[in-house]
Amino acid sequence: MTADLPQTSGRTPLLNAEGLTLRFGAIPALVDVAIDISAGEVLAIVGESGSGKTTLLRVLSGMMAPDAGTVRWLGDDLHAMGEAARRRLMRTDWGFVHQNPRDGLRLNVSAGGNVGERLMAVGARHYGRIREEAIAWLQRVEVDAARIDDLPRTFSGGMQQRLQIARTLVTRPRLVFMDEPTGGLDVSVQARLLDLIRGLSRELGLAVLIVTHDIAAARLLADRMLVMRRGEVVEHGLTDRVLDDPQHPYTQLLVSSVLAA
């Protein structure tokens, strides 16, 4: 595993997209968006509500087809590879962490079953080992292993989110999509969760594509950053560069409106 800081170029990207365009009726959701992400890299997509961040994530993860443009995973056109292949990606090489953990968890299945589901979906058939793996992951995301047989609905919001992360990472994906993973959590819980995501992504060499409107979270996590406004990418670059020396007026406004941390 390469421990040094990821570079933005010089490596084949895991995922790259070009010319993505999508309209919802008269509203342009994406306008000629290009993006690439390499192994081990954390890329943040920031922008205000309605700027097309989540739509971009949905298009990149194959949940939604663009009107024009291509998304490539390791060079293969995502929207041409068929649903079966996309679903296989979704349960092996990819992970998706939803803003609301209730969208990403099975609430009527125990915490252990939730973590084990992806293992079983890719063919694990040994109960004891599935359970061991589930316990190891619960500990890793700081959920008490004694609660392995409890239903997620008895968990707090922060715990549910950590459970969702454990459930997603258990098959060791190479790329994780995160849609505002800290939204709706209180500030102290947010900080711990960000810390956890940062630790795990470094440790596992995960590439993370994170959508957030929280500039502080982006600064903490991201290597690179992409600023969106009205479906367009107005600025992108290394996080520190974008935040310390914003070029586009909108980015300047965005950065100046954040309280100094």
């Binding site: 649903e83 079966a84 125990s110 252990g112 079953g113 084990g116 589901e117 599935i130």
Partner: peptide, 22 residues
């Protein structure tokens, strides 16, 4: 029907897992 088409049967094993766990 989609799950059958893709032979995506992890869900059934989750059910069996839950039985053993409980």
């Amino acid at each position: 029907e989609r799950l059958h088409a893709l032979a995506d049967y992890g869900l059934m094993h989750v059910r069996l897992y839950e039985d053993i766990a409980r």
